[in-house]
């Protein structure tokens, strides 16, 4: 018989490092969303990887501040939600089946690359 491994959402999933399909770092699991269903138990629907979500967990005010600052580089579609069905592996890190460059999770990285790093010497290589 296969041994079943029990996973605790808060202990084992929340704050885990998320990697994309090429093992590039996307961010951390900053929040987990459950879906409520009529006549059926709730189930895990998605997780969020977004600094603003993390700051909301710290406090209401810090969440508002983070959202205000982040609005500078954020495109649409935030906080970005990765469907739970995309999770491929969960160990110490979590691997998901996406290409991070195509997701809004990289908005800040892209914004810095295009607005700052590009203009510094050696920043285009």
């Amino acid at each position: 018989m296969k041994r079943r491994r029990l996973i605790y959402l808060v202990r084992d999933v929340l704050d885990t490092q998320v990697l994309d399909r090429k093992k590039r770092a996307i961010g951390k699991v900053d929040g987990i969303g459950l879906e409520l269903r009529d006549g059926a138990p709730p189930r895990v629907a998605y997780f969020e990887s977004d600094a603003v979500t993390a700051w909301r967990r710290f406090g209401r005010r810090s969440g508002r501040w983070a959202a205000r600052i982040a609005s500078r580089w954020r495109g649409p579609g935030h906080p970005y939600r990765f469907p739970w069905l995309r999770v491929r592996e969960l160990d110490i890190d979590m691997e998901i089946d996406v290409d991070v460059e195509r997701t809004p999770a990289f908005d800040f990285e892209r914004w810095l690359r295009e607005h700052v790093v590009r203009y510094l010497p050696g920043g285009r290589r």
């Binding site: 490092q17 998320v18 590039r24 770092a25 996307i26 961010g27 951390k28 990887s49 600094a51 993390a54 800040f108 990285e109 892209r110 810095l112 690359r113 700052v116 790093v117 590009r118 510094l120 050696g122 920043g123 285009r124 290589r125």
Partner: peptide, 20 residues
Amino acid sequence: TFGWNWGENLRPRKAARFSM
């Protein structure tokens, strides 16, 4: 802490947040 891609062996372009 924030889960960014990091590494001194990466070019700044490949790790913009880390380099900044």
